[in-house]
């Protein structure tokens, strides 16, 4: 998997972009590791923060059975 954010020239990760964030969570709703996402450390942190905000607002699940 290549770095989606760099590929599509995305500078900011918004918690409302759930379609984008869904690319970085596995079917259980957990954030994928950097090995799988191939993001830079900075991007990975931005994605993590966005996923957590989205979870809190009920846009993404905390867990999915």
């Amino acid at each position: 998997m290549a770095n989606i954010l760099t590929q599509n020239d995305i500078q900011h990760v918004d918690y409302k972009d759930i379609d984008l964030l869904k690319q970085f969570v596995n079917p259980h709703g957990r954030v994928m590791s950097r090995k799988r996402t191939a993001l830079t450390a900075k991007q990975q942190r931005a994605v993590e923060a966005a996923v957590k905000r989205a979870r809190f607002m009920g846009l993404l699940p905390f867990i999915q059975k």
Binding site: M1, Q11, H12, V13, D19, K22, Q23
Partner: peptide, 17 residues
């Protein structure tokens, strides 16, 4: 946050490899 629009311009289907 920042002043600029932070939402990604690209729609989901094109993001998929």
């Amino acid at each position: 946050t920042v002043r600029e629009d932070t939402r990604a311009k690209i729609k989901a289907p094109t993001l998929r490899e």
